[in-house]
Amino acid sequence: MAGWLDNIFDRGAAGTARAMAQFAEARRDVLAQNIANIDTPYYKVRDLPVAEFQKMLGLVIEKSRRTGGALRLESTPNIRVRSTGGLDFQPVERSRANLLFHDQGNRGVEQEMTEAVKNVLLHRVATEVLRKQYETLEAAIRGRL
């Protein structure tokens, strides 16, 4: 989104929540893939770069606070920001050195389910924040509560 719309939709919590929801939706596919392949020989579990994303988000929030402008996401080695504002993520192999099967696979259904549940909760928080923001915006446009 360009121009003045940026300042309405991507200011403060809304921009952060939007990025979080996008990340959670992309991560859902990767985690579903891990669960579907739980019995596939030689399969190695993958994940999106969670720490990298959080670090990037932290930095851009800091920057937008300092400059007072809209939130602008930045590309990192495994995250690409499209010109349209969408995000592309590169899945990375999750390292879990202490639990390996004979086929060098490192899968465990418990960890996948835990991550999936955490992911759903994160997504719910993000969409709930977005919904509240849009409601506030709507109230401001109508001029009454």
Partner: peptide
């Protein structure tokens, strides 16, 4: 038993994806 549990894990993942879609639609 293992196959049945793995099946259930996939059903649970499906349910989670569904609940995410519902909360997105609520926007």
């Amino acid at each position: 038993i293992e196959a049945a549990r793995a099946f259930e894990a996939n059903v649970a993942a499906f349910e989670m994806a569904k609940s995410m879609l519902v909360s997105s639609l609520r926007l």
